[in-house]
Simulated scan of single mutants.
Amino acid sequence: MQTNTIQTTWRNDAPLTPESTYSTEQAAAILHIRPNTLRVALCRDGAYMGVHPIKRANRFLAWPANEIDALARGEVVK
């Protein structure tokens, strides 16, 4: 008997929201860190190096793109 398995992959090609935010995975890739680093810092300190994400209605986090980009450039975010 053959079993049919359906493989699904998570796709992150959705367009950015008008306020220009990154998902946790996108922000982590830009900062060259693991996504769990952002999540742990948020749970522990309430922010990651001064960046506070927005919690969406679907429980996902949206990280402000301008602040993540500033961190990637080495700037200090307040």
Results as ranks from 00 to 15, higher is better:
Thr21Leu: 11
Ala65Tyr: 01
Leu31Phe: 01
Arg44Cys: 07
Leu42Asp: 07
Val76Thr: 15
Val51Lys: 04
Tyr22Gln: 01
Ala14Val: 12
Glu75Gly: 05
Thr9Ala: 13
Leu42Thr: 05
Val77Gly: 01
Gln26Arg: 12
Ala27Ile: 01
Leu71Ala: 04
Asp45Gly: 05
Asp69Lys: 04
Leu42Pro: 00
Val40Gly: 03
Ser23Asp: 08
Glu19Gly: 07
Gly50His: 05
Thr3Gln: 12
Ala65Asp: 02
Thr5Ala: 12
Ala70Ile: 05
Leu31Ile: 02
Leu61Ile: 05
Met49Asp: 13
Arg39Leu: 15
Ala65His: 01
Leu71Tyr: 01
Leu31Gln: 01
Lys55Leu: 14
Ile6Met: 11
Ala27Gly: 03
Ile68Trp: 00
Asp45Arg: 13
Lys55His: 07
Ile30Cys: 05
Arg73Phe: 04
Glu75Ala: 14
Val40Lys: 13
His32Asn: 15
Ala29Leu: 12
Arg34Cys: 06
Leu61Val: 03
Tyr48Val: 00
Ala62Gln: 06
Ile6Phe: 11
Thr17Phe: 07
Arg44Asp: 14
Ile54Glu: 11
Leu71Cys: 04
Glu25Phe: 07
Gly74Pro: 05
Val76His: 09
Glu25Ala: 14
Asn12His: 11
Arg34Gln: 14
Asn12Val: 09
Glu19Phe: 07
Val51Pro: 04
Ala47Asn: 15
Glu25Gly: 09
Thr37Ala: 14
Thr8Ile: 14
Thr5Trp: 07
Gly74Met: 03
Ala65Gln: 14
Ile6Pro: 01
Pro18Tyr: 06
Arg73Gln: 15
Arg73His: 10
Ser23Gln: 10
Ser23Arg: 12
Asn58Pro: 05
Met1Tyr: 06
Leu71Phe: 02
Gly46Phe: 06
Ala65Arg: 14
Gly50Ile: 07
Arg56His: 10
Arg56Glu: 13
His32Tyr: 06
Ala47Asp: 15
Ser20His: 12
Asp13Tyr: 09
Cys43Gly: 10
Tyr48Ile: 01
Asp13Met: 08
Glu67Arg: 08
Ile68Gln: 02
Gln2His: 10
Arg34Trp: 04
Glu25Asn: 11
Phe60Trp: 08
